[in-house]
Amino acid sequence: MITRADFEAIATWIPAGSRVLDLGCGDGSLLAYLKATRNVEGYGIENDGASIVRCIQTGVNVIQMNIESGMKEIADQSFDIVILSQTLQAMKRTESVVADMLRVGREAIVTFPNFGYWRHRVQIALGGHMPVSNDLPYQWFDTPNVHLCTIADFEAFCRDRKYRLLGRMVFNHEREQTVLPNLLGTLALYRLTRDRVA
């Protein structure tokens, strides 16, 4: 569930006037918010026709495209920031999607529900069931979330691929969580870039 607090947190990493691409932009509300508060220009990428109509109604430029297709229509380094908001866990080709984000943009912002949150751990460890919560409301058999990860997993993922983390924010619902984030955080936000090869 994306909240106003998530928008505000993301916006703190967006310099005014940036060129932004929002992958899986849904109804375009994040981009509309960033246009209003950060004067950004850019496009949403979405593959659902009804969402595209909503984007048009919101006044957001939107391109219909499968973000796992390689996004060949988008030139290298043509955006300042590429956002993937709470969509990472639903990607089949997670690695190439993150690589493409850093191909088309100088920086990427990735947000995802933290599977390491203690309630999730308890549900598996003691309950013996796949976690179901407000943040992960799906049953195992009908979830769109095929690649859930923890904060520790994502940081290892970035380290292995030499992605440089420029910022991290972890929230427990609407409050920022600084102590034991992987245990107590429900939502993780990362800002990353690709180190230039000399």
Partner: peptide
């Protein structure tokens, strides 16, 4: 149509693209 969209994106034009099923 995606070739047209690509050209417009390269030019940083304002564009919306829908692929109707």
């Amino acid at each position: 149509s995606r070739e047209i969209v690509k050209a417009l994106l390269d030019d940083k034009k304002e564009v919306t693209y829908a692929e109707i099923d």
